[in-house]
Design a protein around this nucleic acid. Structure first.
Lengths: 191, 191, 191, 191
DNA sequence: GATGAATGAGGGTTCATTCAT
DNA sequence: TATGAATGAACCCTCATTCAT
C-alpha cells in the first residue's frame, strides 16, 4: 500500500514536472497531469491539496536535489577545481532541464509560501558558494558568490531558449565561466 | 484626435506597465488596467488587439528604452569606464523597476511572438556588449558578454526581492561587478 | 439602461424564485436560472455576487412583501376581524406559493447572514402580531402571537404537500384558526 | 455477527443523526459520518444503500420513536391532561433535539420516498391527536389537531434557534399552549 | 471613438460511490 | 465483512472579448 502510494505520488510529481515545466503553471491543467500520470483527475487531490501545492512540491523536489548534488560536487578538491565543478553542475543541471524551463519562469504568482521557498533556495545556494569562496579567502565572498551564480544563470539562457544548442558548447562555457570568475576577462585559463 | 489617441494609448501602456509589472500577466485583469487608465474596458481593445498584444507592447516599450539608454551610456569613454557604466545602467535600470519585477518573471506563456522578441532583445543586448568587448580585444567576446550580463542579472535579484535594500549598496555592487569582470575575483580594484 | 438593469434583475429574481422555490437551494443550478431568465450564466454574476447572495435576495424580496401586506391587512378593523385577516393573509400567501415551498424548507445551510435575516423576519412578524394582541389586551401577548403563527404554519402544510387541496377548504381553515385562537377548541364561532 | 451488525448499524445511525442533524443533508459528508462511527467510509455502504437511504433511516428511527412516546403519554388520563401531556412531549422532544434541528429543516430534496414518509408521519401524528379530540367530542377534530400541532411547532422555534433559551421557559410554554388550545387566548388557565 | 452590459468557454475542486484486496 | 484508494461527474465562478448604443 505504501509502495503504491509512493509510486503514484511519484508518477504525479513526474507528470507535473513535465507539464508545469513545459507550459508553466497557468497554462497547465490538472486534468492533463492526471492523464499523463495515468490516473483520474480526482486522484491528484488525494496526494496534493491543490494545484499550487503540487507545483510547490515539484519545485521543492527539484531544488533540493540540486543542492544535494552541489554539496557532493565540491568534496575533496582544490578551490579552482571547485569553481569549475560548480559551474559545470549548474550548467549541466539546467541543460538537462532545458525543455522544462517553465518551472523556473512561470510560477504561480502571489503564492507567498512559494516565493519564500524560492528566496530560501537562492539563499542556500548563495551561502554554499560563499562558504567555498571564504575558505579560499576571496574578498567580499557573498557578493562574489552572487555574481558567480549570476554569470551561470545568464549563460544557461543560451540553451534554455535555443533548441539547436549543442552539448559541446556546454564545456567551453563552463571553462569560460570558471576562468572568468577566477581571473577576469583577460585572464589566461589556468587549466 | 491623433494626439488624443496617443494620450490614451500611453495611459493604457502606463497602467498596464504598472499592473502587469506588479502582478504578472496571469493575475492581471484588463478591467483593472482600464480602471487605472481612466477609461472603459472596451476601449482597451480599440488600441490593443488582445491582452497578449498589450503585454507585448509594454515589454517592447520598456526594452527598447533600455537599449537606447545603453548605447548612450558608453559613448566617448575608455573600456574600463564603459564596463562600469554598463554595469551601472543595468543595475540602476532594474533598481528603478524593482517594484515591477513581474514584467520580467511572469510573462504570458506560449506566446511565440513574445518569446521571439525576448530572444531578440537579449541578443541585441549581448551583441552590444560583445562589440564593446571586441573593440577592447577581449577574447571570446560573445561568451564573456553573456557572462557579464549574467552577473548583473543575478546581482539585481538582491533588490528585486528585498524591500529593504538601500541605494548605497547599489554603487558597491556596480563596482564589484565591473572589477570582477575586469580582473577576476582576486583582482585589486582599478579605480 | 437603468430600466434594462431593473428588468434583468427582476427577471433573474423571478427565475430564481421559481427554481429555488421548486427544487431548493442545493438542487438548483445557476445555469438553469440563467436559462429561465433568458440570459447567459455569467450575467447572473453581474447582478448577484454568488448563488447564496441570489438566494438571499429572493428570500428578502418575498419576506418583505409579506410584511408589507400584513401591515395593510389589519388597518381599520376590530380585533376579531384583525385575527381573521391575518390568518387569511398567512394561509393565502402560502397557498399562492404552494409550488414554491422549497424556498422556506431548503435554504442554504451555514449561511449566517441568511439565518440572521430569517430570525429577524420571524421576529418582525411575531412583533407585529404581538402588538395587535397587546392592543386587545391579551395576556402573554408574545407567546400567544407565536402560538397563533404556529397554528397557521402547520395548517398551511396541508396544501404545501398536498396537490389536491382545494381552495374552498382554505376559507374553512382560516375561520377555524381564528376562532380557535379567539375562543379555544370548544368555542362557538363568533362570525 | 448479527449482534455486531446491529452494533455497527446503530453506530452509523447515531453518527448520522448527529451530523445530519447538525449540518443538514447537503453539508454532511459520508466520510465524516464514517469517521464519527469509527468505521471506514466503504462500510457505510454495506449497511445503507446511499446517502439518501441513510438519511431516511435516521429520520424514520427518530419519528417512530416519537410516535411511540406519544401513544404512551396519553394513557389513562382525562382530556385536559392529555392535551397538556402532548404539548409537553412535543416541546420537550424538540428541546432535547434543539442542536439537531437540521434533521427537520435540511432534508434531501427531490426524494419522493422521504417526502412520502414525512407526509405519512405527519398524518399519523395528526390522526393520533384527532382521535384524542374526537373522544373528547371536539368539533372539527382533524383541523383542530393540525392547529394544535402547528402551535407547538411554532413555539418550538424559540429554542431551536435560540441558544440561550432556558428550560424553565419550556414549562410556561407548555401550559400556555395547552390552555390556549383549550380555552382560547382569553381563557383563564384551568390548572 | 467610447462605453460597459452581456457573453460563455473553461478549469479547479468536491465527494458519493465503487471495487480490488 | 471491512477497507480506503480511486474514480469522474458535476457545478460554481472568472474574465477576455464582443457589440449595440
Amino acid at each position: 500500500m505504501s509502495a503504491l502510494h509512493g509510486d503514484k505520488q511519484e508518477a504525479i510529481l513526474d507528470a507535473a514536472y513535465n507539464i508545469f515545466g513545459t507550459k508553466g503553471f497557468y497554462e497547465t491543467k490538472i486534468s492533463e497531469i492526471a492523464e499523463q500520470a495515468g490516473i483520474a483527475k480526482g486522484t491528484v487531490y488525494l496526494y496534493f491539496e491543490s494545484k499550487e501545492h503540487l507545483f510547490k512540491a515539484v519545485t521543492r523536489r527539484d531544488c533540493e536535489q540540486f543542492l544535494e548534488r552541489l554539496s557532493h560536487s565540491v568534496q575533496g578538491c582544490a578551490f579552482e577545481e571547485q569553481m569549475h565543478r560548480m559551474a559545470g553542475l549548474h550548467l549541466r543541471y539546467h541543460y538537462e532541464r532545458r525543455y522544462h524551463s517553465k518551472l523556473f519562469f512561470m510560477l504561480p504568482n502571489n503564492d507567498p509560501e512559494l516565493m519564500e521557498y524560492m528566496r530560501g533556495f537562492i539563499q542556500r545556494y548563495t551561502d554554499f558558494v560563499t562558504q567555498v569562496l571564504e575558505q579560499a579567502r576571496v574578498n567580499n565572498a557573498s557578493l562574489h558568490a552572487k555574481a558567480f551564480i549570476g554569470m551561470l544563470e545568464r549563460l544557461k539562457m543560451d540553451f534554455m531558449f535555443n533548441q539547436e544548442y549543442e552539448e559541446a558548447e556546454l564545456l567551453t562555457t563552463v571553462e569560460l565561466a570558471a576562468n572568468l570568475f577566477l581571473g577576469g576577462c583577460r585572464a589566461v585559463p589556468i587549466r
